[in-house]
Amino acid sequence: MNMTHTTVRPSGRLVRRWGRFALMAVVAAAFLLPFYWALVLSVATRANVFTMPPDFVPSFDFISWVRVFAIAPWGLYFLHSVIITGATIVAVLVTGVLAGYALAEVPFRGREVVMGVLLAALMVPPEAILIPNYVVAYHLHLLNSLAGQVVPFGANVFAVFLFRQFFKTLPVELWDACRMDGARWWQYLRHIAVPLARPVVMTVTLLTFVAQWSQFQWPLIITQGNGARPVEVALSYLQGFDGSHWRELAAASVLTLAPIFLVFLLTQRHLISSVAGRAQI
């Protein structure tokens, strides 16, 4: 039996190899198909939208792209989302660097307690505290504002721990040398430690970008009207009121997906390893 096993193997292996390639191609196509279909729908002519079976050949009619900008102020929504995402990234980086540095390199009484308290924050499911968060935002006058979409996400425990882990790996001599030259801790942090931590900065930036760009439930409940509405919520309303306008909806969806695609194409490897690292804590 073992004999037949080995004699069959070469051709069997070839079949398996090509089978695997075919399967990978099918899987990749299946996962990308929804995106492709959205693109096709967004440039379809009216006659090509409601067909059975669906039409997969793009007809390059850009009328819905023109119309979607006429329906709603997408530039404004984009601006909101960009401001919210950018400000959150800055806040998470600053709070993460400072706290991470303190927990790694500044021995102070109560450091263990702070570590424990931070870890406890990870145990709180965001969904469960939705209502008290809303109550707090109400009393801080953060409802219907851009700041109200930044402050609740301004510190991230994972970012703190990432920076702490990194700063712990820096040799003590580095700080000693800086101190000899008369540098203070913030100069050391700004000119030496943080530039060295560039991969961590990148990881935190990417993860915060992805999380904030996709933020939905919180802005849904705290924004009314166009004052502070981000793209995701605007898109949700568009579907609610114009659900039958597939082409415009598809165009708007592609519009909000575009920044994510772009960042993914540029930083693919780093992004994937960031998400992998996120899971390990």
Partner: peptide, 25 residues
Amino acid sequence: SLGWALVLPALAFLALFTYLPAVLV
């Protein structure tokens, strides 16, 4: 005091939108 000052910003954000709500709920 330096150590506490550095962890304070992070703790302040979390206090407002994690610790306080966890009790408040």
